[in-house]
């Protein structure tokens, strides 16, 4: 029997580590991976709570979140590819065109 509090704290740490990655990392792909970490934290929270309540809804929810994460990753990576394709000839330092 795992105390629910432990699970939730673990999940929160995962979520926060993901957040730290999002905020601090400059590499886009790693930032996206950090988002995945955050989503995992959410999933673990849901599953932990579901376990504590002895019901399945939380798990079903986290199932949905996995699908959602997949869809998000697909779109995000597609945009990324599009950026790098258009950027090939451009200087890397000039990251954003839209700065005012």
């Amino acid at each position: 029997m795992v105390p629910t509090g432990y699970v939730l704290v673990l999940a929160a740490v995962l979520f926060l580590l993901g957040l730290v990655g999002v905020v601090l990392r400059r590499n886009v792909i790693i930032v996206m991976m950090s988002v995945e970490l955050m989503l995992n934290g959410v999933n673990m929270t849901l599953i932990g709570f579901a376990r504590a309540r002895g019901e399945m809804f939380g798990q079903a929810f986290s199932f949905m979140i996995i699908a959602l994460a997949a869809a998000e990753a697909a779109v995000g990576l597609a945009i990324l590819v599009a950026i790098f394709r258009t950027r090939r000839t451009v200087n890397v330092d000039e990251i954003s065109l839209m700065r005012h």
Partner: peptide, 16 residues
């Protein structure tokens, strides 16, 4: 995607 994009130097973006 990592493999496709290749050179990691290009992947800098950064929110903050």
């Amino acid at each position: 995607v990592v493999m496709m994009v290749g050179n990691t130097e290009r992947q800098e973006f950064g929110i903050m």
